[in-house]
């Protein structure tokens, strides 16, 4: 099929960018979206033009590297699907496709479609872990965990850190990302000792990084390729309120932006 692409090109951080149009003829419906971009890039290089830069790695929907706004939707039109797993059979001959990077103050553009998502790592640094230094663990079966609790932890642990939730949110909030981690660890008995401090520190860090607040639009849940539920945000809010009320000291953990 023959397509027309409108792609955001931006040479470097802080420099002006613009939408550039590219024809994309002879695209097979069996190609993945990124393979379609590969083909366009090979043709650009042959013409002596710099290829379109985009993040990608595993191309199996698990590493979370790829992230594209495709026709205004994070990861494109197919639910529960990352851009790398989206196939061209979701489009039809003659389609025009708008491809842009994630848009959020906390995710500055690095080049073309690549953004800087290191703010996510800093949210994890604030408390998204269980302190269990190597060697300190007891036998794994000494701590039974009910299947429903373990499953709920896993549902939230499935987050791939791609940033689609932020890109889809009108407030550019990182609440779903942050809440997924708080909920994953908070659902498990191992996660209890640090639970209150974790909630305070991670939420504070999220605010410091410049993400917006959550006003429960629910766009994040729609965009999440791993189906993480907005229920996690309720859990985060409960933990945060409880932690604030019990005045757990958190500032020392959240650092400064």
């Amino acid at each position: 099929m023959n397509l027309t692409l409108h792609v955001w090109r931006q040479p470097a951080p802080g420099q002006p960018g613009r939408i550039v149009d590219y024809p994309a003829p002879d695209i097979s419906p069996d190609m993945s979206f990124l393979e379609m971009l590969d083909v366009v890039n090979e043709r650009l290089i042959e013409r002596g033009e710099e290829p379109i830069a985009f993040d990608h790695d595993c191309r199996e929907g698990i590493c979370g590297s790829c992230g594209l706004m495709i026709n205004g939707a994070a990861h494109g039109p197919m639910k529960l699907t990352t851009a790398c797993q989206l196939h061209m059979r979701s489009f039809k001959d003659g389609d025009e496709i708008w491809i842009e990077p994630w848009r959020a103050k906390a995710f500055p553009v690095v080049k073309d479609l690549i953004v800087d998502r290191s703010a996510f790592d800093r949210i994890i640094q604030a408390g998204g872990y269980i302190s269990a230094p190597t060697g300190t663990a007891q036998d794994a079966n000494a701590l039974p965990i009910g299947k429903p609790e373990a499953d709920w932890a896993m549902d939230n642990a499935a987050c791939i850190g791609c940033g689609a939730c932020v890109a889809a949110c009108p407030n550019a909030s990182a609440s779903l990302f942050t809440a997924a981690k708080i909920t994953h660890l908070g659902a498990l008995p191992q996660g209890q000792p640090e639970r209150m401090r974790r909630a305070l520190a991670m939420v504070d860090r999220m605010d410091l990084e410049g993400f917006g607040g959550c006003t429960l639009f629910g766009e994040c849940q729609e965009a999440c390729p791993k189906g993480i539920s907005i229920d996690a945000i309720m859990q985060m809010n409960r933990d945060y309120v409880l932690a604030s009320a019990t005045k757990v000291e958190a500032k020392e953990w959240s650092g400064s932006a």
Binding site: A137, K147, A150
Partner: peptide, 21 residues
Amino acid sequence: NIIDQCVAQGVPFAREYGGLL
């Protein structure tokens, strides 16, 4: 030791209804 360590970190391994791995 690896399994013990990972469980302590909060890795959500699959479990039986009795709560064991």
